[in-house]
Design a protein around this nucleic acid. Sequence first.
RNA 1: CGAGGUGUAGCGCAGUUUGGUAGCGCGUUUGGUUCGGGACCAAAAGGUCGCAGGUUCGAAUCCUGUCACCUCGACCA
Length: 480
Amino acid sequence: MAKEAKQDFVQHITPRSENFSQWYTDVVLKAELMDYAPVRGCMAMRPYGTRIWELIQAAMDKRFKETGHENVAMPMLIPESLLLKEAEHVEGFAPEVAWVTQGGSEVLTERLAIRPTSETMFCTMYARWIQSWRDLPMKYNQWCSVMRWEKTTRPFLRTSEFWWQEGHTMHATAEEAQEETLQMLEVYREVCEDVLAMPVFAGQKSDKEKFAGARATYSVEAMMQDGKALQAGTSHNFGTNFSEPFEVQFLDKDGTLKHCHETSWGSSTRLIGAVIMTHGDERGLKLPPQIAPFQAVILPIAAHKGGVIERCEQVYQQLHEAGIRVKLDDRDNLSPGWKFNEWELKGVPLRLEIGPRDIENGVASYMRRDTFEKGTLPLDSLAEGVKELLNDIQRSMFAQAKAFMDEHTKDVHSYEELRQQVQTGYARAMWCGSRACEDNIKEETSATSRNMPFDQTPIGDSCVCCGQKADKVMYFSKAY
RNA sequence: CGAGGUGUAGCGCAGUUUGGUAGCGCGUUUGGUUCGGGACCAAAAGGUCGCAGGUUCGAAUCCUGUCACCUCGACCA
C-alpha cells in the first residue's frame, strides 16, 4: 500500500500505447537526449544524445571512407546569387531559408542564406577544383548543421537547425553517378539495419516526392511503432542539373569539355528519433548495443558491504579493457530499484548487478533491456559473456523490429484496402505513375508514396487509385 | 498555418470561476540508518506564477499581445 502511494510521486513517461507523440517527447526529454533551446524550433543536444549521434557518425563515417570519400568543411553562409542558380532548387528551399542581412553594423549588399543544404556551395567550389577527367571522381562529404525555418517542429524529427552529413560527389559519366547514388543508399540501408537494428525499405521516390533539383531521388524508409514511415536517408542523382548552371566542367580524354554528373546524399540526427520510435517501449528508450553510449551498466548491490565496490571496480576495468562501453553507477544516494528504472529509461542494453551473493557465487546477475530476461554470467569470463549477450541483443532487436514491419506491411489491390492498410502501416500497391493518383491518395487517406522497391515484380496490373494500367510497385503510408 | 489544450520551485501538480502579495508531493542540501525493482527519520534551502504591455490602491487570478509545448488537421525532400 505504501508502495502504491509512492507511485504517485514517481516520474513516469506517458504510456506509449496511450499517446505515441507524448510518449516520444517524454522519452526524448527524460532520457536527457536533448532540451529545447531558446530559439524557435531549435534544440540543444545533451551529452547522452550527442554520444549516440557520435556513435552513429562513427559508423557512417567509417563506411564513407571505405567507399572512397573525404571529409571537408564548407562555409555556413551562402550568397543569395548562388542559391538562385538552379530554379527548381530555389523554389523548393526558398520558403524555409533563414537570411543574414547585416554584418556588425553594416547592412550587406547581398543577403546570405544560412545553409539549408550545400549543393550550391559544393558546386561553386567543385567548379574551381575540377579541370580534367583525372580529377574525377571527386567525392566529398561534410558533417555540419543546417537550418530550415520549419513551421512545425519536433525534437530530432524536424527541427529548424539539425545536424547531419551531406555527401556531394562529381563524376565523369552518368553511369558512374548512378552507381554512386545507389552505393550510398546501400550504405544507409546497412547502417540502419546492421547498426541501428532498424529495418528499412529502400527504393526510388516518385517525381512528386523527389528532392528539389534532382533527376532521381532514392530513400530508405523505416517504420515507426505507430505504423508511420520515417525517411531515414536519401540519395540523389542530379545528373547535370547543377553542373550546367554552375559550370562544373572537365576536359575529357577525347579533348571535349563536359559537364560533371553529380550526386548528393544525406542523413541526420533524425536517425536518433527513428531509433527511439522503432525500439522504444513503455519503460522508455531501448538502444541497440552498437550505438548505446553505455552498452552495460554495473550496479553495486549493498555497496556499503565489504568488497562490493572493489569488486565492481575490478569488473569495470575488466570490461572497459575488453572494449565494452561500460558504466559503473556507484552513486550512493540512490537505491538499486531507482537505478534500475533510470537505466531502463535511458535504454542501456544490459544491466549487471553485483552484490555480496553474486561475489560469493563468482557471478554477475544480468538483465537484458530488450527482453527483460534475467540470468547470471561467470565473473572470470565476464567480458566474453557480455559481448555474446550484446551481440544477441543487437540481433534480437533487429528481428523484433523486422517482424513488426513485416506484420504491418501488406499488398493491397483495391482503394478500400489501401485506405485500411495505411491506418496501421505500409501498403504495397500497383501505381500508374501519375501525379494525380498520388495527390488523390494523399487527399483522401493522408498517406503519401514512400518509394518504389528495386524488386518491381508486379502484384497486379491496374493502378490502385485510378484502375488504369499500372506497372509500378509503390509503397504508400502515412509519414513523419 | 487552422481548430482545441497547457505554461505556477529541478519534476509532477493545487490555487485562477469570486483580484488581497503563493502551497503540496517528489527531488535537492546536511546528518544518521538503509541497499537484490523507484528506502526511512530529522533539519534546511529553493518560485519577480512563460514573456511584454494594460486595468486596479493591489494581479498567478481580469484584458490585450506574444512565445513555447501537446493533440488533431494542412504544409514540408
